[in-house]
Structures are given as structure tokens and as C-alpha cells.
Write a protein that binds this DNA or RNA. Sequence first.
DNA 1: TATTGTTATACTCTATAACTATA
DNA 2: TATAGTTATAGAGTATAACAATA
Lengths: 159, 159
Amino acid sequence: MTERDGGRRDLAAMLSQVMRALGAVELPVLDAHGVSMWGYVVLTALRESPVRTQAALAEAIGADKTRIIGTLDELQEAGLIVRERDPADRRARLLSITEEGREVHSSTQADIQEKENRLLAMLPPDDRRGFLNAIEAMSALPREDIVAMAEPPGGGARR
Amino acid sequence: MTERDGGRRDLAAMLSQVMRALGAVELPVLDAHGVSMWGYVVLTALRESPVRTQAALAEAIGADKTRIIGTLDELQEAGLIVRERDPADRRARLLSITEEGREVHSSTQADIQEKENRLLAMLPPDDRRGFLNAIEAMSALPREDIVAMAEPPGGGARR
DNA sequence: TATTGTTATACTCTATAACTATA
DNA sequence: TATAGTTATAGAGTATAACAATA
């Protein structure tokens, strides 16, 4: 009845619906912990390792270098990150997360993943495992690899 | 090595990366067929069945009623949809897809899904099946159901 | 008075360009 | 002159408010 003549809906359409729902689920959590979406993304990136320049951080999280400045200001103001001038090159700002930033990140992430897990619990175990494996695999690929992979074999040949 | 101490990355983070890549893959296809993203979404919705008001269509695709007007103008101009006044209520505009609209939609969708399938082909069959089952199940749920599902049991009780 | 569609306005987000300071 | 960071400006996308036609 809700099936459609053998076809399936477009991947992007389905994923964007899921994304919107996830946004509705997770934004209140971020609010409760006092971090913005981009702030959380920055903390997630810095949790792995410090970064030597803001441009590199922006690149790493898929943002523009001008776009994250306000976010960095807020995080610094809140004591969640530190920005120090690189003594070797006083133009650059060494970015790192503070202990407090680590705590805020991990408590926020715990809440987020707890909700995500409750959502995933609705799925049959096999589907849940396949779903996680799949998005982990796909999201690990550089975007250009994905774009290339979607092209017909030998397709789009330059000449 | 690329694994992280037992944890997993956030669902929303992974999904948004995949979404961006999908956008890069699919936008050129839409361009090639001369339809905008929202135009394609509208055609997809009208392909199922006609709609009696623009507000209802907007609601159905998760958009604002003022937001789709330009899109409807373009689609009508291109002869892909028709907008007729409802004789029974001359305020309303009956929306339906034309034969040409159907053709544009189905050729566009064929190209899109062909690329999506090439992408999915990178996955082991079990993961692919689980992934598709999972997003079909989750995207079929109304957003408020998903939000409610993510809450702790009995959580957020009103009184 | 309420509703459908439209237009006008404002607001948010993002990208581009111009500027400062270092090198 | 080139680069890191910042600020200023402009553009897209979206939402809100006001409006005209119809009920």
C-alpha cells in the first residue's frame, strides 16, 4: 500500500528527512549544554588533536575560515578552547581544547548518542548493524571519491 | 587506527557528510535535466497524486507555502505542471503534473538512482540491505514520532 | 471573519572582498 | 609578496508580515 511499484525513494530525499528529524532531536540537547551546532563540531574536531591554524580547522570540518571565527570567540570566551599565538609564526593561532571543553563535549555527546541509540533501537539488529556499517564506510570517504564512484565507469572522460 | 576508543561518531555528523557528497553527485544531474532541487521535489510529490492547494503541497514536502511559489511558477512555465483554479473554490489552485513533467521526472530520477546505485554497490550486500531497510523505516516515520522515540521512556512528562 | 495565494520585508547563513599583522 | 586572521560587504535562502481575492 505504501510500497511503490518496485522502485525505492531517492536516497537523498530519505536521508534529508532523517537529518531534519535528528536536528529536531539534537538541537535541544546542544542548547541544554550551552553549545551551538558549530561549537559542538569544533569541540569534536579538537578533541582528537590540537590544530595549528584556524584555516586548517575550518577545512577539516568543511566550513569557511571566516565562518568559524564567531564560534571560536564564543568557545574561547566560555573557556572551552584556547587560542595561542604560535611563537614560531605569530600569525598563526594554535587551537586546543581545554579540560572543561572536553567535559562539555563528552557530556553533550553522551546525551546525543543516548538519544540516537534509542532511535536505532527501533531497528531490527541486522538492519541496525548494516546501517551503521554503511554510513561509517561512506562518511569515511573523501567527497571526491564518492563523486568519482558515482560516475559511470570510464565516464566523464576528459578527452 | 581510524577506530576510536570503542565509541562511534555522531549519527548526524556522518549523515551530513554523506548528504553533502550526495548533493555534489546529484546537483549536476538536476542541472542537466533543467530542474531545480525544489522543482524535483515538487515533481516527485505530484507524481504520486494531484494536490488541491499549494499550502497542502508545501506542507507535504516540508516547505513553506511562500517558498514554493517561485518553483511552481517555473515548473508551470516549463509545462511540467498545471495550476488550475478549483471551480468549487476559486481561491484554491489544483496542482497536477503533466505528461512532460512525468517524463522529465522519471528520466531525472533514473539518472539519480543510477548514480546512487553505483555508490551503494561499494557496500557489502548485507550492509546495503540493512542500510536501505533502515533509512526507509526511519524516513517513513512522522518527525514527531522520531522525536518522541528519542526521549527517555516516560521522559519529558508534561505533568 | 476566515482562508488561499501572493508580494513585501526582514532575518539568518554563507561566501567574497578588503584590511591588518606578521613573515 | 605572500599568508593567517579579521572585519566589512554582499548574496542566497528562508521566515514573517502585510495584502488582494474569494469564501
